[in-house]
């Protein structure tokens, strides 16, 4: 179990983390979701004992990150955001190296990494630097798992990975969870948040919201509408004239419009008609987690 209490960290003038508090239950996949620069990596660096927080404390399975950092290092696995294996060593040599660093052998926890390693096995003598992006991540994951950690930290594991490999990666994480390993994963992709058991939404070093994806969606305040737009820019220009407590933002091919008070719905319908759209173009939709995040961020 992870307990993070009121952690703050500043770098020179930038406040990277402000008073961050949350808990992670054993055996869950907890997602830290937020845009670049939200403080996700700083939070992970503190939790994996690479840097110390300025204020606050945290513990992993009862071990304090400051006092017991040596014990923590034995029970965690870490996959950094940047590819950090040795490109001039082969896949097998990389794996063997990290197993040995923890005083283990590959065989000891082979059944844990077997599903991932079996995909890499045909390339085991290839140098790690010559693997494709998705393969590199899988190898890095093997290296982070080879000592069977109790808690696994994955810092943006799917950034820069193709959609198919991303989906595959997430199904691997579900398998890891079944082994009873707690997984902390950070991602800038909102769609991945729904794959977590619980998520924490982060922005500018602050934790805006914590909860299961369902709960976060349920707590969306007001109503959400989508307007199909053939051309986004002129539409946005027209919406500038809209009054009332209504927020709008482009969302792919659509314009999402969040109405805080039900009383304003009539106002919106009138306005849409006025700018030349049919009533069928405007539909009420259930908010996605991204809509919730935008709501939390913007207002």
């Amino acid at each position: 179990m992870l307990k993070i209490a009121r952690i703050s960290k500043s770098f020179k003038k930038v406040e990277a983390l402000k008073d961050v508090t949350f808990e992670v239950e054993n055996g869950e996949i907890f997602g830290v979701v937020g845009p670049d620069g939200a403080g996700k990596t700083t939070l992970f660096n503190i939790l994996v004992t690479l840097i110390n927080p300025d204020k606050g404390s945290a513990s992993i399975n009862g071990f304090n990150i400051d006092k017991d950092y040596k014990k923590i290092r034995e029970v965690i696995g870490y996959l950094p955001g940047q590819f950090s294996l040795y490109p001039d060593l082969s896949c097998y040599e990389n794996l063997d190296f990290f197993a040995t660093l923890y005083g283990n052998s590959i065989e000891e926890n082979y059944e844990l990494i077997q599903p991932i390693w079996s995909q890499l096995e045909p390339f085991k003598d290839r140098r790690a630097g010559r693997l494709s992006g998705g393969m590199k991540q899988k190898l890095a994951l093997c290296c982070a798992l080879v000592h069977r950690p109790q808690v696994l930290f994955l810092d943006e594991p799917t950034t820069g990975v193709d959609p198919v490999s991303r989906r595959e990666f997430w199904s691997i994480l579900k398998e890891i969870k079944k082994e009873g390993i707690t997984v902390l994963v950070s991602t800038p992709y909102m769609d991945e948040a729904t794959l977590c058991d619980r998520v924490g939404l982060m922005q500018n070093g602050e934790l805006l919201k914590i909860g299961s994806p369902e709960n976060i969606v349920a707590e969306f305040s007001g109503l959400l509408f989508a307007l199909r737009a053939s051309e986004m820019y002129p539409l946005l220009e027209k919406f500038k004239n809209l009054s009332g407590n209504i927020h709008y933002y482009p969302f792919g091919q659509q314009l999402h419009i969040a109405v805080s008070h039900e009383a304003d719905v009539g106002l919106l319908y009138d306005f849409v008609k006025e700018i030349g759209y049919g009533l069928l173009d405007l539909q009420q939709i259930t908010p996605s987690i991204e809509d919730c995040f935008i709501q939390l961020m913007a207002y």
Binding site: V48, T49, L50, K70, R73, E74, I76, Y78, P80, Q82, F83, S84, L85, Y86, F98, L101, Y102, G103, C143
Partner: peptide
């Protein structure tokens, strides 16, 4: 530079 020092740092070595 490559970041692998961070990996080594958080091993028990």
């Amino acid at each position: 530079e490559s970041g692998s020092m961070r990996m080594l740092t958080i091993t028990p070595i």
